[in-house]
């Protein structure tokens, strides 16, 4: 079984585990059990009726913007642990919204390459909307709002917003300009995903930005055996994230999907959690 089949299976299992409470869609209720104090490693809105865990980006903003705390050791620790252990393998193998984007990308259409400048937008989103605004802009009670969730997150609009609005008439009556803005971002994101592989992950996702920072040190990483590599360029050509695994095997954009491992004719590229021989290419 190649990496792509294994990955799709694990993505579907992760999607199912993250959204196990399907019956909640019927009444528009949320799961309220204790598991929701734990964060999902991938992006999955906790206001989705089926969600069984908290969204790490939502949780980070909630604690940082709360009256009691201005820094979340708990969520930062979880993100640090996921990052060091898995890096962006979380995006490639476990993220529910990543799977949605990949399925949308299968819609037949001309596929485009993303300009490099767009890749840096997600770092601005992380710093401004996730780290600064929830702490800096507070109400009269000293509470900040989750700015990324409020103004940008298309996962929240798709998984939480639409399903809850369908179930609750009272919420439908409250729809206004903000929801229109979020719907526009959702539509743009989904259209972007048709033409660009994982458009949201690469341009806007603050979680991808965080995990990308750990790719150089994460336990799961790519290694390229320079003795076996024949320089055919197939790995670079097959990479949806537009990474060259031979030159930068642990680039921040690599989601460890393993497509390069599958396509390598000499077995030079390897996805591993162990540091192997000395003739592997350094980062």
């Amino acid at each position: 079984m190649n990496f792509q089949i294994k990955r799709k299976l694990l993505q579907m299992i992760a999607f199912g585990c993250s959204n196990a409470h399907l019956l909640n869609f019927k009444g528009g209720r949320l799961y309220t059990g204790k598991w929701k104090q734990f964060c999902n490693p991938g992006l999955n809105c906790y206001s989705c009726p089926a969600a069984g865990f908290a969204c790490p980006i939502g949780a980070l903003q909630a604690v940082n913007g709360s009256r009691q705390f201005s820094f979340s050791f708990y969520v930062t620790g979880l993100l640090l642990a996921f990052g060091v252990l898995l890096g962006r393998a979380v995006c490639g193998w476990l993220c529910p919204f990543g799977l949605i984007q990949e399925l949308i990308h299968k819609i037949p259409s001309p596929k485009r390459k993303l300009k490099k400048g767009f890749l840096y937008v997600k770092y601005v989103v992380l710093v401004v909307f996730v780290l600064i605004l929830p702490v800096a802009v507070t109400d009269y009670m000293g509470m900040g709002k989750p700015a990324f969730c409020q103004y940008i997150c298309p996962a929240g609009t798709l998984e939480g917003g639409l399903s809850l609005l369908l179930a609750h008439e009272s919420l439908r009556k409250a729809v206004g300009t903000l929801f229109s803005l979020k719907m526009a971002i959702l539509v743009l994101t989904l259209c972007g995903c048709v033409f660009f592989y994982r458009f949201f992950c690469r341009t806007l996702c603050p979680l991808g930005a965080i995990y990308g920072l750990f790719n150089k040190i994460s336990f799961i990483h790519l290694e390229v055996d320079s003795h076996k590599c024949v320089g055919c360029g197939k790995c670079k050509a097959v990479c949806g994230m537009e990474v060259d695994p031979v030159q930068t095997p642990n680039a921040a954009e690599c989601i460890r999907c393993g497509a390069c491992v599958d396509v390598c004719p000499t077995g030079a590229v390897c996805l591993t959690c162990r540091t192997k021989s000395s003739h592997t290419r350094p980062i």
């Binding site: 906790y46 908290a54 939502g58 949780a59 989750p146 969730c149 729809v175 929801f179």
Partner: peptide, 13 residues
């Protein structure tokens, strides 16, 4: 936060 409907997350807050 996670067990209550987050109005900001769904675009109403």
């Amino acid at each position: 936060k996670a067990v209550n409907i987050c109005l900001e997350c769904i675009g109403l807050g």
